[in-house]
Write a protein that binds this DNA or RNA. Structure first.
Length: 263
DNA sequence: AGGGTGACAGCGT
DNA sequence: TACGCTGCCACCC
């Protein structure tokens, strides 16, 4: 790069900073100003351990934007910068440390709300991610279920594509979305990792393949096998079904909690 | 019978 | 555009 380029770059940066400073409210502390100006172009990252290894977590002002596994911090910063057009530095400040703890807690399975910034995704992908975020630990749902939930019942394959590009794996638990027949389906980190994760969460895929739906003969309600309500059905009142349709014909209705897809 | 397989519809990117 | 973390059905043994 030549000098002229650097001069132009300096000039551009200076101009941008002047514009930003000019728009800031008056009467604030200088420290706050600096922080505000910096955070408008710089995001932070930290690392956290997960069941599938050490993950890098990139965070902006509005929440977690990117989670990635493997590589060096430099690699992560590079891909982050390409993707979000923002600089990335390691976060050592108190807010970042607090968030690190929060994310670690979330990955350990506790129900804590971690704010996510999904603004860089398409509307369809965002709807998919929002829905998938609601699948509790220990439960799974089919791709077709997600498709129906986001209002595009025939878009199960597009759901797969959307999940393949999940910018925040684990935080949006896309590993809990499986095939309709209970087979594990694909995963960005490999089907094996997906199966391992689910096992860790207490999901038995073998059982789901055998009996994808469980109904209660007392209430005449049919659920996905991993629906939280199944646990409340007395073992001898449980009735296995191979499809929702069969159950409906037998006089059952769909559970209002897990809302199984009728095919 | 019922698990395995391949073709194809279908959707968002 | 062709492609993909799917679903479904026909067809196989």
């Amino acid at each position: 790069m030549n000098e002229r380029f650097h001069e132009a770059q300096d000039e551009l940066l200076t101009g941008l900073l002047r514009t930003i400073v000019a728009r800031l409210p008056v009467g604030e502390e200088p420290e706050w100003l600096v922080e505000r100006v910096l955070s408008s172009v710089v995001d932070r990252f930290f690392t956290v351990d997960s069941p599938i290894g050490r993950m890098y977590v990139g965070v902006g002002l509005r929440g977690v934007r990117f989670v990635q596994r493997g590589g060096s911090p430099e690699d992560f910063a590079r891909s982050y910068r390409e993707r979000f057009k923002r600089l990335l530095v390691e976060g050592t400040d108190t807010p970042t440390r607090n968030l690190t703890e929060k994310v670690a807690t979330a990955l350990a399975g506790k129900r804590v709300e971690v704010s996510l910034d999904l603004s860089e995704t398409t509307p369809f992908q965002r709807r998919v991610l929002e829905v998938v975020k609601s699948i509790p630990r220990g439960e799974v749902r089919p791709y077709s279920w997600v498709a129906r939930e986001v209002g595009s019942p025939k878009a199960s394959r597009a759901v797969g594509t959307a999940l393949a590009n999940n910018p925040v794996p684990l935080l949006v638990p896309c590993h809990r979305v499986v095939k309709n027949d209970g087979r594990v389906g694909n995963y960005a980190f490999g089907a094996g990792e997906k199966a391992r994760l689910l096992k860790l969460e207490g999901v038995s895929l073998d059982e789901i393949v055998r009996t994808p739906y469980i109904a209660a003969c007392t209430t005449k309600i049919v659920c996905y096998a991993t629906c939280r309500n199944v646990g409340r059905i007395h073992p001898e009142n449980r009735r296995p079904f191979r499809s929702v349709r069969e159950a409906l014909i037998a006089g059952y209705r769909s559970c209002r909690v897990c809302r199984p897809v009728v095919t």
